[in-house]
Design a protein around this nucleic acid. Structure first.
Length: 291
DNA sequence: GGTAGACCTGGACGC
DNA sequence: GCGTCCAGGTCTACC
């Protein structure tokens, strides 16, 4: 079945897909011929369905490989809307960006939205898998988690959904180390899955909380495996841009841009973007760096 | 509050 | 083929 969803203008599906590397992580995918974003998801009913999301006038079209009942369609619609940030608007950021040559292109490209997973749990696990490793290993970890522990698609069992907290919570640390190659991250992911599965930690509530950003950041930092970089990355996913996800790449790029390649620390990165206030995360993320 | 060392994997390199 | 070194953030112990 197929249906459409409207987006807050301006909207560009390719801009969301290219906003960061999530589209390369299982169970996301890109259709070679059409360029549509694909995703395999397990619904609340435990049904596993495949989505193919393409551009449509004023928004996106969503093709599902099965017929959905009205409740399931509402669930998938809400999920896709969250993943693509269809309701997000960036007028205030664009007004500032137009005055900065290094950000002028974000307006014409409709940049600002970051591709998200349906659940914050999934995005926390993904973010932990990006830390202290190379991107190729991150791709491998996510693929292994999906391949070994995700629920299969009935029509094509080779395709699987991202494992739920409940599915991971019953595993042991050794399985996450050896099968998913999570290494020292295994106990962090296991602890997180168990806390979400038993209700101790309500991550989904953080998607809509009115909590001030510093307080929300403290909540994220309380998760084992989530440090300053990971917390800032997750805040960006949650639509809060007051903190910068400073990693080794950020230090290198800011050093090149403003410090003649000299060794710098996080304080210099923060100083470089402080003037962007609540939008500093986006200013950093979409800055036209000299590669 | 700041710092050093350990954590784990995989790639690069030298032998 | 094997061993060593290194990069990549976070945690813990220690000062």
């Amino acid at each position: 079945m197929q249906f459409t969803l409207s987006a807050q203008p301006p909207f560009s599906l390719p801009a969301v897909v290219r906003s960061h590397g999530w589209a390369q992580l299982a169970p996301f995918g890109i259709e070679e011929d059409s360029g549509r974003l694909t995703y395999v998801v397990r619904l609340e009913s435990s049904r596993v369905v495949a989505l193919a999301i393409g551009e449509a006038p004023d928004g996106v079209s969503v093709e599902v490989d099965a017929e959905l009942d009205p409740l399931e369609q509402t669930e998938v619609g809400g999920m896709v809307s969250w993943m693509l940030g269809l309701d997000q608007e960036f007028d205030a950021f664009y007004a500032l960006a137009q005055e900065e040559p290094k950000l002028a292109r974000v307006v014409e490209r409709a940049q600002g939205r970051l591709l998200r997973s349906p659940t914050l749990f999934e995005d926390v696990v993904r973010t932990i898998s990006t830390t202290n490793t190379q991107w190729r290993a991150t791709i491998r970890m996510n693929a292994a988690l999906v391949d070994h522990f995700g629920a299969p698609l009935a029509a094509d069992p080779a395709r699987r959904a991202f494992p739920t907290p409940e599915q991971l919570a019953v595993l042991d640390e050794a399985a996450l180390r050896s099968e998913a190659r999570l290494g020292y991250r295994a106990p962090y992911v296991l602890e997180l899955a168990q806390a979400v599965a038993d209700g101790t930690l309500d991550l989904e509530a953080l998607k809509s909380t009115a909590m001030p950003t510093p307080q929300l950041r403290k909540r994220l930092l309380a998760i084992k495996g989530v440090g300053n970089y990971a917390a800032a990355n997750l805040l960006m996913i949650l639509g809060r841009y007051d903190f910068l996800p400073i990693d080794s790449w950020a230090l290198k790029m800011v050093s090149r841009e403003w410090h003649d390649g000299e060794q710098i620390g996080p304080a210099e990165v923060e100083a470089a973007f402080a003037r962007w206030g609540e939008w500093q995360g986006l200013a950093y993320w979409f800055w036209a760096w000299e590669e």
